[in-house]
Design a protein around this nucleic acid. Structure first.
Lengths: 190, 190
DNA sequence: CGGTAGCTATACCGGTATGTATACTGAGCG
DNA sequence: CGCTCAGTATACATACCGGTATAGCTACCG
């Protein structure tokens, strides 16, 4: 379906490349990491990298996709641990905090990637917008589940708090940003 | 005082370079713009660029500084137009909306710059953190002025809303993000 | 009058970027 | 047996990066 769809499971070398690329791209920024370094760090030749992924752009998209998958899995795990619908909403903010503290505090990989890609029509921007739309959809679901009227506008507020917490935690060096967002969300839910 | 202090007013060519660099850096990202392009676009030789600014890093810092100055001036103008302390707080959110709509919708230049610089100790990161701290300080002032108790924690919430609105407007393509943040702030102020 | 500041013009340096070409090895498999 | 696929190894093409060097021009200013 999608042009970049990659059904087949990655080969061992491909996996190593993607893991290394994900770590380096996130930690240093996309433009600051060359394909040669990725290949070397993965213990692989450049040819293998290009055989598996075709281009740097495709590798970047694979990076964004897999990191987002990890995040969603982590989030779902946290959501499953909470029973009360209201608690499930609040749990998302606790999840950001823990995620940022353990998975690198350089903020949102999507936002960072967009910063390096000028063209708003580029797949990177579309991927990022999709991810935010997905997250907003999740908040709509949770708000509906919790029985709030106008779950859409509640979701708008929650996602603004969500993204603001990520930025203030990383760029603003505000260690309690996710707590602040959580407390504010708690207030909105009353 | 500061290592990058530049007391002397810029020469005409220097001004042109800075203006061009600011536009290009913001629109395309720092790493995507070379010094050669900046020089050409400003109608200046590379030598002039390096005579005025010394290095790309210094030019980047000058860009961040001047863009922030423009933003602060714009914000102060909007604040001066509101009388009621509570309205002054809300006016900051209207200001972001108008700023983003007229000054490029690629989000926060500071956040974007940080995305391209790995080292958290780099001047770019310090500049960004300072800017967020300044903004938080402004919210503390406004909250104090409006007579709220615990203006510090109110400011925390307001700045999280603020930054979240910027991200959701640009990356999330949520045109009403600043309105959502404003309405949420309004709710917090009651 | 002489020096300095601001500027143009051009050429160059070493390094690094994405991506390609060629030739080879080894394992799985119909 | 022979084909395909994953992978290694090395070399290369082409382009651009930040930054420097050299030389000369103009205008102001003590």
């Amino acid at each position: 379906m999608s042009a970049t769809a990659r059904e087949r499971p990655l080969t061992p070398a491909g996996r190593r490349v993607l893991d290394v690329a994900a770590a380096l791209f996130y930690e240093r920024g996309i433009g600051q990491v060359g394909m040669e370094l990725i290949a070397a760090e993965a213990g692989v030749t450049k040819k293998t990298v290009y055989d598996r992924f075709g281009s740097k752009e495709a590798l970047i998209l694979a990076y964004l996709r897999t990191r987002d998958e990890r995040w969603r899995a982590f989030l779902n795990e946290r959501l499953a641990a909470a029973d009360d619908p209201r608690d499930r909403i609040l749990a998302t903010f606790d999840a950001i905090g823990e995620w940022l503290r353990t998975n690198g505090s350089r903020g949102c990989s999507m936002v960072n990637a967009c910063a390096e890609v000028p063209d708003p029509g580029h797949p990177v921007h579309l991927t990022a917008a999709e991810q935010k739309a997905w997250l907003r959809g999740l908040y709509v679901e949770l708000a509906t589940e919790a029985g709030y009227d106008d779950p859409a506008s509640l979701a708008d507020r929650l996602i603004v708090l969500h993204e603001g917490a990520v930025v203030m935690f990383s760029v603003g060096r505000m260690a309690h940003a996710t707590d602040t967002a959580r407390d504010t969300a708690d207030l909105l839910l009353r």
